[in-house]
Design a binder for these strands. Structure first.
Length: 884
DNA sequence: ATATTCACG
DNA sequence: ACGTACGTGAATATT
C-alpha cells in the first residue's frame, strides 16, 4: 500500500470550527472554541486517515497574487471577529507542539500550497488526502488524491473521490474550475457570469466541458438571455476561472519527506490542554502526561507517610527542598499555635506531624538555612507562625497562591482545591468540606486524623505539582521580576505588618462612641418628628416610603428594589426640608458608630492591645492590596467628625508614626505611560496639577482659578483616570450633561497624549485579551467581547484604568519591599505597619524617626524611574490623627 | 445570600 | 438607542 500524505487546510478548518461550536471560554476568560474544534477535527482526521506525512497550510493576512488579478478579490469578506483573532496564535502554538509543519506564503493562499503539495505527492508516488471545509478543493481530486470535507459540526466528514463526484455532480473534478468560472463565488467575491448558478452551471459544464469549449460553441447554447449574458461577460468568466484555479506549482522549500509525522511534545501539550481546559484531549494523551488525574485515581495524590520528625529533618538535609503547611486549630488568626505541620520533601509522600513548641523550635535552623528551599501556598499564614516563634524564614521561593494571582488576578478563589481544578481538572476537597460550614463547623483538632492527613497530603502534593507549571508560565509571560522581586518578597512584608499590627486605644473609641450616641439619639428624635412617625431609619425601604410617598419628595433615582435614598440623591433634595439634613447626618454618624467605633473595638487584640488587620495580596484585579478585619484602608478622614477616629490609632511606646504619602501618583503614572507632553511638563514644573488643568480647560489665567473651578478640574482629572463619561461627570459635579461633555472635550484637546493612550490601550486589550502594568502585571479583560453594551463599556474603562491603578500599585509594592529590607538591614527597630494604596506608615522608635523619614522618602521617590518625578509628602505624629 | 449604603484611595 | 467613573470592605436590612 502507498504511503499517505494528509494535507490540512488550516484556515478553512479554523473558521469552520469557530462557527460550529458555541463560544467556549476558559475560567480565565480566553476564548477557545475555534482552537478546540480545530484540534478535534485534526485528531479525528488523523485517526481516520492514519497518514505517514502531515502538514497544515494557512492563509496569511493581507493581499495575494489574486488581488493583482482582481482588486476586489475577497473584497466582501468581513473583518475577522476578535474572539477568533485571539485564538489564532494559540492554535499555531499547539500545532507547533505537535511537531506538525505549518506552511504559508505571503503570495499564495492555503489552497495553492495544498494543491502544489498534493501534486508533488502524486508525482513522487504517494496518496494524498486534503482536509478542508471548502468545496473548491474538489478540482484537485484524482485517483491518488481525495478530499475529506467537513460536514456539519466537527466530527462528521465526507470522503470525496473521483467516483463520488461523478455520482453526485456528473462532472469531472477539473470541471469544477469551469463551474466556478461560470457561477462565481460569493464568499470570495468572484463575479462569474450573472444569471448562472449551480444548476445552469452544471448543465453547461456537462454539455461543453471547459469554458473555452463553451465559448467556441456559443451558438449551441439554448436560451436567449443566457447566451446574451455569456457574450457580455466573457472576460469576466475567464477571469473568474483564473481566480478559481488552484495554483499547483508554488515554489516550496520543503519536500514530502520533510512532512513525516514526528513524536509530539506531550509535556507542553499537556500543559496547554490544561490551560485551555481541553479535558477530552488531555485524556487522550499518554498516561504519564496527565499524571495528577492518574495520581488521584490511584490515590497517590492523597497518600501520606508516617515518619518521625527526626527522619523528616534528615531527609530535608539531604534533599535541600520541601513544601510545608502549618495547621492551626480553627481559624488561623484566632489561635496562632500550630497543632500539625505537614511537610513534603521533594517527591516523597507528605508527612503530617503532630507538633508543639519544642518540635517547632527544632526546625528553626532549617527554616533559617539559606540553602534549603521552602515552598508553600498562602505562605503569609506560615511566616506569621514562624515570626511568633522568632524564626526568620530564609529562601522561600514559591507560593502557589501568589503565583496564580499574578497569572490571573481576576480569579475569585485561590484555594488549593480550586487551583487543582483549574490546572488538573480534578479536585479533592474544599476546606469547608473538611471542617463544615456555619454552626456545625469543626476545628482541625476535631477532625479524624486520617481524613485530615489526606487533605494535607493532597494540599502539598498539589503545590508540588503546580510549581513547574506556574513558574514556567510566569517566565514565558515575562513576569519573573514581578514575581521574584516584588510579590514573593512582599509576602514576608505583609506577614510582618499583620503580625505587628497597630496600637489602638479603646478608651478613645469609647469617648467618641458616647458622644456619637448622644447626637444620634437627638437626630432620631428630629427625624421622627419631621416624619410624623417612628420607623427604622436604617432601612432604605422604609425611609423611601416616608420620603417619597408620605412626604412626596421627587423621585430622582430608583434601585432594582425601590427608591434610592443614597447620599447623592438626598443631596439633590437638600434645602427642601430639615428631614433631609437630619437623615444625612444620622447616616454619617451611625456609620461612624457601628463600623468604626463598635467595629474597631471588637478587633483590638486583648493580648497585644493592637489591631492586626489582614493584608490580602490576592484580592484586587488591579494589583492593589486589600485590608480586612478590619479594613484599615478606609478609616475616615474626609470629614472632621470622622477624622477623630484616627486619634485612637497610636504609635507604640516611645515611638512616632512616620507617614509617607505619594503625591498624585496615579496622575503621574498616567502622564508617564501616556507620554503626554503637557501633563509631563506640569509635573516637571511642580505645578498644582488641578489648578493647571482648571486654567487650561476653563480658559482662565493660572492665578485666577477659583476654588470651585479647581475642584471641578480635580473631578475631571479623577474622571479621566476612571474612564469618564459626560453623564458620569455631570452627575458627580451636579452640572448639565452638555457642560460636562464640553469639559471632557477641552481636556482631551489639551492633553491629547492621554486621548491617544486611551484609544491605544483599548485596542491593545482587544487584540491581546489583556492589559499590562509597568511591571508586566496582567489583567485579562474578557468583557471587551461582550454583546451587552454596558459590560463592553466597562471592559473599555477597565482597559485603561488598570494600567494606571496597577502601575501605581506596582510602585508602592516595590517601595514596601525596599523599606522593609532597609529597616531590617540597617538594624532599626522601626516597623512598617500600614499601607493605604499611596501611603506607607512606619511605627518608628523616637530616636530613629529622622533616619526613617529620610530613608522612606528616598526609597519611595526612587522606587522606579518614570518620565516624571515621584513626589512624597511626609508627616510625623503620635497618632494617625496627627499625621494628617 | 443579596442588595443598599458609605467609608477610603 | 442604550446607560453611565476605577478599586476595595463592612454594616445593615431583607429575601
Amino acid at each position: 500500500m502507498k504511503e499517505r500524505v494528509l494535507i490540512i487546510d488550516g484556515s478553512s478548518l479554523f473558521f469552520r470550527a469557530f462557527y460550529a461550536l458555541p463560544l467556549l471560554k476558559t475560567k480565565r476568560g480566553i476564548y477557545t472554541n475555534a482552537i478546540y474544534g480545530f484540534i478535534m477535527m485534526l485528531e479525528n482526521a488523523i485517526e481516520k486517515v492514519n497518514p505517514n506525512y502531515l502538514v497544515v497550510c494557512f492563509d496569511m493576512k493581507g493581499k495575494t497574487f489574486r488581488n493583482d488579478l482582481y482588486k476586489d478579490y475577497k473584497g466582501t469578506r468581513q473583518k475577522t471577529p476578535t474572539e477568533l483573532e485571539q485564538q489564532w496564535p494559540i492554535v499555531r502554538d499547539i500545532i507547533d507542539k505537535m511537531n506538525i509543519k505549518i506552511l504559508e506564503s505571503p503570495v499564495y493562499e492555503a489552497d495553492d500550497i495544498a494543491g502544489t503539495l498534493s501534486l508533488t505527492a502524486e508525482n513522487e508516488g504517494y496518496d494524498s488526502i486534503l482536509l478542508t471545509g471548502d468545496k473548491d478543493y474538489f478540482q484537485l481530486v484524482d485517483k491518488n488524491t481525495q478530499v475529506l470535507l467537513t460536514r456539519k459540526g466537527i466530527t462528521e466528514m465526507d470522503i470525496i473521490s473521483v467516483e463520488s463526484i461523478k455520482e453526485d455532480y456528473d462532472i469531472t473534478p477539473e470541471e469544477f474550475i469551469d463551474l466556478k468560472g461560470l457561477m462565481g463565488d460569493n464568499s470570495d467575491n468572484i463575479p462569474g457570469v450573472p444569471g448562472i448558478g449551480e444548476k445552469t452551471g452544471l448543465k453547461l459544464v456537462r454539455e461543453f466541458g471547459t469554458i473555452e469549449n463553451l465559448y467556441d460553441n456559443l451558438d449551441k447554447v439554448t436560451g436567449k438571455k443566457l447566451k446574451e449574458n455569456l457574450e457580455n461577460y466573457k472576460t469576466q468568466a475567464f477571469m473568474s476561472k483564473k481566480l478559481g484555479t488552484i495554483v499547483r506549482n508554488v515554489p516550496l522549500d520543503v519536500g514530502i519527506k520533510d512532512l513525516k509525522i514526528q513524536e509530539r511534545n506531550y509535556e507542553d501539550l499537556s500543559n496547554m490542554y490544561r490551560e485551555y481546559e481541553f479535558n477530552t484531549l488531555l485524556q487522550r494523551l499518554p498516561e504519564e502526561f496527565h499524571k495528577a488525574d492518574i495520581e488521584m485515581i490511584s490515590g497517590d495524590l492523597i497518600k501520606y507517610e508516617d515518619k518521625s520528625l527526626d527522619e523528616v529533618i534528615d531527609s530535608i538535609h539531604s534533599k535541600k527542598s520541601f513544601a510545608f503547611k502549618f495547621v492551626t486549630d480553627g481559624k488561623i488568626y484566632e489561635s496562632i499555635k500550630p497543632i500539625y505541620l505537614a511537610i513534603k520533601v521533594n517527591d516523597d509522600a507528605p508527612v503530617i506531624l503532630n507538633i508543639d513548641d519544642e518540635k517547632t523550635l527544632k526546625l528553626k535552623s532549617i527554616f533559617e538555612d539559606e540553602n534549603i528551599e521552602k515552598i508553600g501556598h498562602n505562605l503569609k499564614e506560615d511566616i506569621m507562625i514562624l515570626m511568633d516563634y522568632e524564626i526568620d524564614i530564609k529562601n522561600y521561593t514559591y507560593d502557589s497562591m501568589i503565583a496564580e494571582y499574578i497569572l490571573n488576578s481576576t480569579e475569585s478563589n485561590y484555594d488549593i482545591n480550586n487551583l487543582s481544578n483549574i490546572y488538573f481538572s480534578i479536585g479533592y476537597m474544599d476546606l469547608d468540606e473538611l471542617l463544615g460550614k456555619g454552626k456545625k463547623s469543626k476545628k482541625f483538632s476535631e477532625i479524624e486524623e486520617d481524613e485530615l492527613k489526606k487533605y494535607f497530603a493532597f494540599y502539598l502534593n498539589t503545590i508540588h505539582n503546580l510549581k513547574s507549571l506556574q513558574l514556567e508560565k510566569i517566565k514565558e509571560q515575562g513576569m519573573d521580576e514581578l514575581y521574584y522581586e516584588i510579590e514573593l518578597p512582599l509576602v514576608e512584608v505583609l506577614s510582618s505588618m499583620e503580625f505587628i499590627g497597630i496600637r489602638t486605644k479603646s478608651s478613645v473609641l469609647d469617648d467618641i462612641g458616647d458622644n456619637l450616641d448622644i447626637k444620634i439619639k437627638e437626630l432620631e428624635k428630629n427625624i421622627y418628628r419631621e416624619a410624623g412617625e417612628e420607623f427604622n431609619i436604617n432601612s432604605p425601604k422604609k425611609l423611601g416610603v416616608i420620603l417619597f410617598e408620605k412626604l412626596n419628595y421627587p423621585v430622582i433615582k430608583k434601585t432594582k428594589t425601590g427608591y434610592s435614598t443614597s447620599a447623592d440623591v438626598l443631596e439633590k433634595l437638600e434645602g427642601k426640608g430639615e428631614i433631609i439634613n437630619y437623615v444625612l447626618e444620622y447616616r454619617q454618624l451611625a456609620k461612624l458608630k457601628s463600623t468604626y467605633v463598635d467595629g474597631l473595638k471588637e478587633l483590638i487584640n486583648g493580648d497585644t492591645g493592637r489591631i492586626h488587620s489582614h493584608f490580602n495580596q490576592t484580592v484586587t484585579s488591579t494589583g492593589r492590596i486589600s485590608s480586612t478585619d478590619p479594613n484599615l484602608q478606609n478609616i475616615p478622614i474626609r470629614t472632621d467628625e470622622g477624622r477623630l477616629i484616627r486619634k485612637a490609632f497610636l504609635a507604640s511606646e516611645d515611638c512616632l508614626l512616620v507617614d509617607a504619602d505619594y503625591s498624585q501618583i496615579e496622575l503621574r503614572v498616567l502622564a508617564s505611560i501616556s507620554n503626554d507632553k503637557n501633563m509631563i511638563e506640569a509635573f516637571d514644573n511642580d505645578d498644582d496639577i488641578h489648578r493647571r488643568t482648571a486654567s487650561e480647560v476653563f480658559g482662565v489665567d493660572f492665578d485666577d482659578v477659583t476654588p470651585l473651578l479647581r475642584s471641578r478640574a480635580k473631578a475631571v482629572n479623577f474622571g479621566i483616570v476612571y474612564g469618564i463619561s459626560d453623564y458620569g461627570l455631570s452627575q458627580n459635579l451636579n452640572i448639565p450633561r452638555k457642560v460636562a461633555a464640553d469639559y471632557i472635550e477641552k481636556y482631551l484637546k489639551h492633553y491629547s497624549g492621554i486621548k491617544d493612550y486611551m484609544d491605544n490601550e483599548v485596542e491593545k486589550a482587544r487584540s491581546k485579551g489583556y492589559v499590562e502594568t509597568i511591571l508586566k502585571r496582567r489583567r485579562y479583560i474578557p468583557e471587551l467581547n461582550a454583546k451587552n453594551y454596558n459590560i463592553r463599556s466597562f471592559g473599555e474603562r477597565v482597559a485603561f484604568n488598570t494600567p494606571i491603578q496597577g502601575s501605581a500599585a506596582d510602585i508602592i509594592k516595590i517601595a514596601m519591599v525596599k523599606v522593609y529590607e532597609a529597616l531590617r538591614d540597617e538594624k532599626l527597630e522601626s516597623k512598617l505597619i500600614l499601607q493605604i494604596h499611596d501611603e506607607l506608615i512606619v511605627d518608628a522608635k523616637e530616636d530613629e524617626a529622622d533616619k526613617v523619614k529620610k530613608l522612606m522618602k528616598d526609597i519611595m521617590e526612587q522606587a522606579v524611574e518614570l518620565k516624571v518625578k515621584l513626589k512624597v509628602d511626609m508627616e510625623v505624629g503620635s497618632s494617625l490623627y496627627d499625621t494628617k
